[in-house]
C-alpha cells in the first residue's frame, strides 16, 4: 500500500537510526578513534608477523619450511579458544540478573562468530601442517577431535541465535546453549582421551618436543599478539553492527505500527 508523506507523522525511514540511543556514538559507521588505533596496531603487528614468520625465523631442523604454518595455526587456535571463553563469560553475565543487558548477548554472539571463523582456519592450517608432518590430514588425537567438536558446537550455537523471536528471547536461549557447551566440551575431551588412551598414544607430542629456537618462539609470540588484536577489532565492530541491526529491527517495528495506526486514522 503506498504511503503518502503527510500520512506519516514520523517521517523517518526504517533505515534512519538518528534518534536511537544505542547508535548515537557511531552515526558515521562503527569506527571510533580507539578502534582506528586498534586497527593500525593490528596491521602493524600482522606485518611484523609476516616478516618474522616468513623471513627472519629459521626453518625447522625436522619439519623444514612447514613449521611456518604453525605461526598461523597457534595464533588462530588461541583466538578461537579465547573467543569461546568470552562467549561463555558474556552469556553468564547476560543470564545473571544483576548484570543482564543485551550488550552481553551481542558480545557473546560476535565473539562466537569470530571464534567459528578462526576455528575453521585452525582446522584448515592444522590439516595442511599434519599432511606435511605426519603424512595425513587428520589424526584421532583427543585435542584435535575436541577442537572439531567445538567447531560444530558453536555452529549450532550460531544457528540457535538465528532462530528469531525477540532480542531478549534470542539472548536467553543462546546464553543457555553457550553455557551447556561449557558442560559438553570437557566431557567430549575426556571421553575421546579415554577412548584413544585404550588404543594408541597420541602422535602429536612426538614431533614437537624439540626445544624451540628463540626466533621461532618470538614469532609465535607476535602471532598471538597480532591475532588477539585482530580478534578485538573484529568483535568490537561486529558487536556494534549487531546493535545497529537490533535498533533497526525495533525501528522497523515502530515504523510498521505507525503506518497501521495512520491507516486507521485516515
Amino acid at each position: 500500500m503506498p504511503v503518502t508523506d503527510n500520512a506519516v507523522t514520523d517521517n523517518r525511514t526504517p533505515g534512519d537510526l538518528s534518534g536511537s540511543d544505542i547508535t548515537g556514538a557511531f552515526k558515521s559507521g562503527t569506527g571510533t578513534r580507539f578502534t582506528r588505533l586498534l586497527g593500525i596496531a593490528t596491521i602493524a603487528s600482522m606485518a611484523l608477523l609476516i616478516v618474522f614468520g616468513l623471513f627472519v625465523s629459521p626453518a625447522d631442523v625436522i619439519q623444514g619450511e612447514s613449521v611456518r604454518i604453525l605461526y598461523i595455526h597457534v595464533g588462530t587456535v588461541w583466538v578461537a579458544y579465547l573467543a569461546f571463553s568470552v562467549t561463555a563469560l558474556a552469556s553468564a553475565a547476560f543470564l545473571w540478573k544483576r548484570t543482564t543487558s543485551l550488550i552481553w548477548d551481542r558480545i557473546a554472539g560476535a565473539s562466537a562468530e569470530v571464534g567459528v571463523l578462526f576455528m575453521a582456519l585452525t582446522l584448515f592450517a592444522g590439516a595442511l601442517w599434519g599432511r606435511l608432518a605426519w603424512g595425513k590430514f587428520w589424526v584421532w588425537d583427543a585435542r584435535v577431535t575436541t577442537t572439531a567438536f567445538l567447531f560444530i558446537t558453536y555452529i549450532g550455537y550460531l544457528a540457535v541465535r538465528g532462530l528469531g523471536g525477540s532480542h531478549h528471547q534470542r539472548g536467553r536461549r543462546s546464553a543457555v546453549v553457550a553455557l551447556l557447551a561449557v558442560l559438553e566440551i570437557p566431557l567430549v575431551h575426556f571421553s575421546v582421551k579415554l577412548w584413544r588412551g585404550l588404543h594408541q598414544d597420541s602422535s602429536v607430542t612426538d614431533t614437537t618436543k624439540v626445544k624451540l629456537h628463540d626466533q621461532m618462539l618470538f614469532s609465535l609470540f607476535i602471532a598471538v599478539i597480532a591475532f588477539t588484536l585482530l580478534y578485538s577489532w573484529l568483535v568490537i565492530h561486529r558487536q556494534r553492527v549487531m546493535a545497529m541491526q537490533d535498533a533497526l529491527d525495533d525501528k522497523g517495528l515502530d515504523y510498521a505500527l505507525q503506518q497501521r495506526r495512520d491507516e486507521g486514522d485516515g
Binding site: 560444530i152 558446537t153 528469531g164 551447556l180 577412548w195 585404550l198
Partner: peptide, 30 residues
C-alpha cells in the same frame, strides 16, 4: 525443548544434539 516450536527444528535438533551425545556413544559402545 529448545528446538520445540521454532522454525527449522527438524534440521536444528540433530546439529545440536549429536555433538552433545558423542560421549554417550563412545562410553556406551565401549
Amino acid at each position: 525443548g529448545l528446538a520445540a516450536g521454532v522454525r527449522g527444528r527438524e534440521t536444528l535438533l540433530p546439529l545440536l544434539l549429536l555433538p552433545v551425545v558423542a560421549p554417550v556413544l563412545i562410553g556406551a559402545t565401549r
